[in-house]
């Protein structure tokens, strides 16, 4: 047993070194952010998620949106994120502090969503896109999320106010109406809240935004 003991101590110590570097140090360095006031408006930023937005985040997680969409804007010298309009500046660690669950992602089968709330605030667009991405984005390989909508027969005297205006060829037909479920509303509220690099923060004050965007 004696020789094995030293091998054991050895491989656990090498493991510990990485634990200190890649677990402990991030917790110490990246795990204690506090809100700061926005120089422009005085409000505390980044804002915390409302309870509806948190529900929406849970829908995002449950349906695995992260496997195609990232939420991190890279600097202009590295990638074309800023040129594509995905953010006015790179995202920094502080931007995520109130997300509770980081969904930074590692795949871009679809575009980055860090600032989708700025780039695409229209509820209607999101409902159509999520009902069937082919409506707004022909050729997309994003799946349709019809199961997050409710379909019922239309009552001509009392049509639903929030029924989707589906184009020809999509949806169940003229006799039916499609409305977003509560989960879908929550999801869109969450997407609209995604404005991760829209704020001026101590690490990236407005004066530097111009140069980063080059």
């Amino acid at each position: 047993m004696s020789k094995f003991r030293y091998i054991f101590i050895g491989f656990m110590l090498t493991f510990l070194s990485s634990w200190v570097g890649l677990v402990l140090m991030p917790v110490w360095g990246l795990g204690n952010f506090e809100q700061t006031p926005d120089p422009a408006t005085g409000e505390m930023i980044p804002p915390k998620l409302s309870s509806l937005e948190k529900e929406g985040r849970d829908v995002y997680i449950a349906n695995g949106c992260v496997y195609c969409h990232s939420q991190q804007v890279h600097p202009a010298r590295v990638r074309t994120d800023i040129a594509r309009g995905w953010g006015v500046r790179r995202t920094v660690a502080r931007d995520y502090m109130n997300q509770e669950v980081a969904q930074m992602g590692t795949m871009r089968t679809g575009p980055d969503l860090s600032n989708i709330g700025v780039r695409n605030p229209s509820e209607t667009w999101h409902y159509l896109h999520l009902y069937n991405p082919q409506i707004t984005s022909k050729g997309s390989n994003m799946p349709p999320f019809t199961f997050l909508f409710e379909t019922k027969k239309k009552d001509p005297e009392n049509p639903a106010k929030d029924a989707l205006n589906l184009p020809e060829g999509f949806g169940p037909g003229a006799d039916y109406e499609v409305t977003p479920s509560h989960e879908m509303r929550a999801l869109v509220a969450y997407l609209q809240s995604l404005k991760l690099s829209a704020y001026e923060i101590p690490e990236a004050p407005a004066a530097r935004i111009e140069s980063l965007a080059e």
Binding site: P26, L30, F33, Y96, E100
Partner: peptide, 18 residues
Amino acid sequence: LLVLAPVQAPAQPPINWW
């Protein structure tokens, strides 16, 4: 550190990919 007693979000991806 990521599921039961999650650390603040900015620190999660390093632990995730570790």
